[in-house]
């Protein structure tokens, strides 16, 4: 059974939320829907749920970008070594630029991937049947049937 509480006032919503979570309801069963990002609401939740793991995706992506960048440049130049401008074959200053850009690219793509995997967005059910709550703050609690 789904219990739903709608609030127009943010303060009321927050009070109710704190109440519900403090009362021992499992956080997975509590769903809050709100129209704009709200750090206070997040802080409340994060007392009971772990923080987002997205940063690890970003880190992994960034690192793979750096390594990949250097790997691409160094391995290709060793594969067919051609002298240009007398510069040493492994021109680190030049390759840093490539690695840097790839760090950012892979970091961004990895973050996006992480987001998709973690937040389950795109959500195909909701694409077909969207749920709109407007500017209201909504609290949905799944309670077991008695």
């Amino acid at each position: 059974m789904k219990e739903e509480f709608r609030f127009e006032d943010r303060e009321e919503f927050i009070k109710k939320l704190e109440e519900v979570l403090a009362s021992g309801v499992a956080p997975e069963k509590v769903n809050a829907v709100y129209p704009h990002p709200d750090h206070h609401i997040e802080e409340i939740f994060e007392k009971y749920v772990p923080k987002s793991k997205l940063k690890f995706f970003t880190l992994l992506g960034g690192l793979s970008g750096t390594i990949g960048g250097f790997a691409l440049t160094i391995l290709t130049v060793l594969h067919w070594p051609m002298i240009t401008g007398g510069k040493p074959l492994i021109s680190i200053p030049a390759f840093i630029v490539i690695a840097f850009e790839m760090t950012i690219l892979f970091g961004a793509l990895a973050s996006l991937t992480g987001f998709v995997l973690l937040s389950r967005v795109p959500n195909f059910k909701r694409i077909l049947y969207p749920e709109d709550y407007g500017n209201e703050f909504v609290l949905q609690i799944e309670r077991e049937d008695p």
């Binding site: 051609m82 002298i83 240009t84 401008g85 007398g86 510069k87």
Partner: peptide
């Protein structure tokens, strides 16, 4: 050669 360094496709090399 300054020209060799800047060719993006290795169309000029030593």
């Amino acid at each position: 050669a300054p020209c060799e360094t800047v060719c993006p496709v290795y169309a000029t090399m030593h």
